[in-house]
């Protein structure tokens, strides 16, 4: 049972990390706590669901479609709501407030339009049937779970390679480090920011599709209900820290499963907040991150 619980924790942790990757990237580079991020996740899942309804469509069509649509949405939101504030150098809390309003607006509209009923992808989208599972000794994993672990690993690797092994990554890191200096060095800050928005949206959308596939519960609030875990991963892992996000996600997932499996399932929902407050008191920079100190 312990091995299975560890696997459960790893899978759950990977869903948290997967969800938080785009969030932490956006936060680290754009310096904005963007609460509409959860909505990108929902939008990705819903678009993929619509595509999956087309006869003959497979996951390999639905997943990119959902991810790209969410990326597009992220660019639109950023351009309409955050660019104007950046232009007048509004305080960082103004940007946060705009996204607070936007997320309420968007999710309420969506739930009025679609209803709050849950939906699921057609069974067998992975081409493995419904009952398909990988059995490794005492551990059973569904194919959707294997896919989540693989995608999380792949995305973390790809992001690190992009950030540390390409000119584009250098530009992104330059903007993250010091916007004005980056501009002086000839980096197009606006373009880089739009690109980071797009990348974050794509990752949020992809996470939404995979979460929808694994949990079979696609509904307008699915992304919003992941946000608390997203915050916890970002704070515990360190703002904008990709490796930290993976580490923090898995730590959170395993802790939750162990608490639910061996202590009391009623305490599971308190784990994220407890970890977050513990880190804020003891190590505000996060497990592997850097401090974002006041601008004074």
């Amino acid at each position: 049972m312990f091995a299975q619980q560890l696997a459960n924790g790893l899978v759950l942790g990977c869903t948290y990390a997967l969800f938080a990757l785009g969030f932490t990237l956006m936060f680290g580079v754009l310096k904005v706590l963007n609460l509409t991020y959860g909505f990108y996740c929902t939008a990705g899942a819903l678009v993929a669901l619509a595509v999956a309804g087309i006869p003959g469509a497979t996951l390999w069509l639905a997943l990119p479609a959902g991810a790209l649509a969410a990326g597009g949405l992220a660019v639109v939101v950023d351009t309409l709501l955050l660019m104007p504030l950046r232009r007048v150098r509004a305080p960082e809390l103004s940007a946060l407030m705009v996204t607070v309003g936007a997320v309420l607006l968007l999710t309420s509209l969506l739930s009025m339009g679609l209803g709050t009923e849950i939906r699921r992808f057609p069974p067998g989208m992975l081409g493995t049937g419904t009952g398909g599972a990988v059995v490794l000794g005492p551990v059973r994993l569904a194919w959707s779970q294997v896919l989540i672990i693989a995608t999380t690993g792949l995305l973390v690797g790809a992001l690190l390679a992009l950030l540390h092994g390409s000119r584009l990554g250098l530009a992104i890191r330059a903007v993250a480090g010091n916007e004005d200096a980056a501009r002086l060095m000839g980096v197009s800050v606006a373009r880089t920011m739009a690109l980071v928005s797009f990348l974050s949206g794509v990752m949020g959308g992809a996470a939404g599709v995979l979460l929808g596939l694994n949990f079979n519960a696609i509904q307008p609030y699915m992304g919003e209900s992941m946000m608390l875990h997203g915050f916890a991963v970002v704070i515990v892992g360190g703002l904008g820290n990709i490796r930290g996000a993976l580490l923090a996600g898995v730590l959170l997932g395993v802790t939750e499963v162990m608490v639910a499996g061996y202590v009391d399932s009623a305490l599971k929902d308190g784990v994220a907040f407890a970890l977050m407050m513990l880190v804020l008191w003891l190590r505000p920079a996060g497990l592997g991150g850097r401090v974002v100190a006041p601008r004074v």
């Binding site: 706590l33 960082e92 915050f231 407050m277 804020l280 505000p284 974002v292 006041p294 601008r295």
Partner: peptide, 14 residues
């Protein structure tokens, strides 16, 4: 002690 977003996050979690 940190920037404003930390209080916002912690209060959502609260």
């Amino acid at each position: 002690r940190l920037t404003g977003v930390y209080l916002a996050i912690a209060t959502i979690g609260l």
